[in-house]
Amino acid sequence: MKLTVYLAGEIHSSWREEIKDLVKARALPIEFVGPMENHDLSDRIGEEILGTQPNPILRDDAASSINNLRTQVLMNKSDLVIALFGKEYKQWNTAMDASAAVSLGKPLILVRPKELHHPLKELSRKANVTVESVEQVIEVLSYIFSEK
């Protein structure tokens, strides 16, 4: 059995690479997908495809439509969603993706530090599992494949 896992969360730190490296080290049969990690491309994709937009709001709308399509397609093909909330960056997209996973009935692992317990309490209760670290994510993923 091989799982496809959608990695939802901020795109500015290396948390995805950390998860991928730890999964590879344990030889877990997991394929990863997620949002566009090239922030500049994500912001300009609407104009690259649809042409120059008349103002910044319409530029954002055009890019958002294409980014939302990407997210919907990849999340729908995923077996599991991991949503990471960190301390440093605004987390609106993470909240949107985690909520979408819940709405789609996708199993959800929510990663959040203790400091974010209160603001994420409702979402955490909707997740299948809530953990505080990437290492705990790897333990949960490993357990899925455990036979003993």
Rank of each mutant, 00 (worst) to 15 (best):
K2W: 14
T4S: 09
V5A: 14
Y6W: 13
H12T: 08
H12L: 13
S13W: 12
S14Y: 12
S14I: 10
S14A: 15
S14Q: 13
W15Q: 01
E17V: 13
E17N: 05
I19M: 15
I19T: 14
D21A: 09
D21I: 11
V23D: 01
K24I: 12
K24D: 03
A25T: 06
A25H: 09
A25Y: 11
A25K: 07
A27M: 08
L28T: 04
P29S: 04
P29E: 09
I30E: 02
E31G: 08
E31S: 06
F32C: 05
G34M: 07
P35W: 07
M36F: 02
E37H: 08
E37Y: 10
N38Q: 02
N38E: 01
L41E: 00
L41Q: 00
S42K: 09
D43K: 10
R44T: 03
E48K: 02
E48I: 03
I49H: 03
I49P: 01
L50F: 09
T52Q: 04
T52M: 03
T52E: 05
P54L: 00
P54T: 03
P54I: 01
N55Q: 09
N55E: 02
N55W: 05
P56N: 08
I57T: 06
I57L: 10
L58Q: 02
L58W: 06
R59S: 07
D60Q: 14
D60A: 11
D61H: 04
A62R: 07
S64L: 09
S65R: 13
I66E: 01
N68G: 06
L69M: 11
L69T: 13
L69P: 00
R70L: 13
T71M: 15
Q72L: 13
L74K: 14
M75W: 15
N76I: 11
K77Q: 15
S78Y: 14
D79V: 12
L80K: 12
V81K: 09
I82P: 00
I82A: 11
I82G: 02
G86V: 11
E88Q: 14
E88K: 09
Y89F: 13
K90L: 15
T94P: 03
M96P: 01
M96T: 00
A98S: 08
A100R: 14
A100S: 12
A101M: 12
A101E: 09
S103C: 11
S103T: 15
L104M: 13
L104N: 11
G105A: 14
G105H: 15
K106Q: 15
K106Y: 15
P107Q: 01
L108M: 13
I109E: 03
I109S: 07
I109C: 10
L110F: 10
L110G: 02
V111L: 14
V111S: 03
R112K: 11
P113W: 05
P113F: 06
K114H: 04
E115K: 05
E115A: 08
E115F: 01
E115D: 11
L116E: 10
L116W: 04
H117L: 12
H118A: 12
H118C: 08
K121R: 06
E122I: 10
E122H: 01
S124H: 00
S124D: 00
N128K: 03
T130I: 08
T130R: 06
V131I: 10
E132W: 01
S133C: 07
S133R: 03
S133L: 08
V134Y: 05
Q136V: 07
I138T: 02
V140A: 05
S142M: 05
S142T: 12
Y143P: 01
Y143R: 07
Y143I: 04
I144Q: 06
S146I: 12
S146P: 00
